[in-house]
Amino acid sequence: MSDEHAIGFMDSGVGGLTVVKQAIKQLPRETVTFIGDQARLPYGPRPSAQVRDFSWQMANYLLKQDIKMLVIACNTATAAALPDLRQKLKIPVIGVISPGSRAAIKASKNHRIGVIATEGTIKSNAYRDAILAKYPDAEVFSLACPKFVPLVESNEYRSTVAKRVVAESLQPLKTTGIDTLVLGCTHYPLLRPLIQNVVGPNVTLIDSGAETVNGVSFMLDYMDIANTSATKRYPDQFSTTGSATAFATIARDWLDQPAFEATHITLGGELA
Rank of each mutant, 00 (worst) to 15 (best):
I178W: 09
Q87C: 13
L85P: 04
S217R: 14
D224L: 09
R40Y: 01
R192K: 15
I225Y: 07
T231V: 08
I94D: 01
C74E: 03
E153H: 02
M10C: 11
G242Y: 02
T118D: 12
Q87I: 08
K64W: 11
A133L: 12
Y222E: 13
L132V: 15
C185D: 10
S142M: 07
T78Y: 00
L82N: 00
G100S: 15
Q38D: 01
P193A: 07
K106T: 13
M58E: 06
E168R: 03
V161C: 03
G177M: 08
S101K: 08
K174Y: 02
L41V: 06
G100N: 14
A246C: 12
I122R: 08
T175L: 09
G44F: 02
K163C: 06
Q171R: 02
L82D: 00
A248D: 12
R40V: 00
D11L: 13
M1P: 05
N202F: 09
Y127L: 05
P28W: 12
A49L: 11
L132W: 15
D11N: 11
F141Q: 06
R86H: 08
I91R: 01
E4D: 09
A104Y: 00
A244H: 09
D179V: 02
L173G: 04
H111R: 05
S243I: 01
Y43E: 05
D256G: 06
T18L: 07
A259R: 14
T245R: 10
Q50E: 10
V140H: 15
T263Y: 04
N155P: 14
A73N: 07
M10W: 09
Q26C: 09
I178H: 04
T231N: 08
A107N: 09
V198Y: 05
G209T: 14
